[in-house]
């Protein structure tokens, strides 16, 4: 199945770093799985975990939130806030037995197009292993 299954990933990327990095990966013609649809935000801290949960609950297989590395936030502290929030969500997932592979936060600096490729590939592979999100088969959500 893992060969056939192409996971559907929502990317929420910071406009200042990760989105530029994704752009760079594009113009550098790096090849990566076409699994991730990116929404651009002004800061990763705009990505309220509720947005990610909403996507997962209507059947996205994964959500990838990407922001500037700690210390490099365009607004100085936004990504520190993001880090706390996603640490909290990770803890909630652990407590409720939800699959933490489906929600990831990573830091991707603007110059690292290769990291976009690496991260998208790794997340795609880990979700292929995880299989389709069970929320797709669940009507009561």
């Amino acid at each position: 199945m893992s060969e056939e299954f192409r996971p559907d990933i929502l990317g929420i990327f910071c406009r200042w770093c990760s989105y530029s990095a994704a752009d760079l990966a594009g113009v550098s013609r790096m090849k990566m799985p076409p699994t991730t649809k990116v929404v651009r935000v002004m800061c990763s801290s705009r990505a309220d975990p509720v947005f990610a949960l909403g996507a997962l609950l209507i059947g996205a297989d994964g959500v990838l939130v990407a922001g500037c590395a700690p210390g490099d936030c365009h607004y100085k502290t936004g990504n520190y806030q993001t880090r706390r929030r996603y640490a909290l969500v990770e803890k909630i997932f652990d407590t409720l037995g939800l699959d933490n592979r489906r929600l990831k936060l990573v830091w991707i600096p603007a110059s690292e197009g290769a990291k976009v490729k690496r991260v998208v590939t790794a997340m795609t592979e880990s979700l292929q292993e995880a299989g389709p999100n069970p929320t797709r088969a669940e009507m009561f959500i």
């Binding site: 700690p70 880090r83 640490a87 990573v106 830091w107 991260v119 790794a122 592979e125 880990s126």
Partner: peptide, 8 residues
């Protein structure tokens, strides 16, 4: 949190 931690 924020490190590349993929896979199970």
């Amino acid at each position: 949190v924020g490190e590349e931690r993929f896979g199970s």
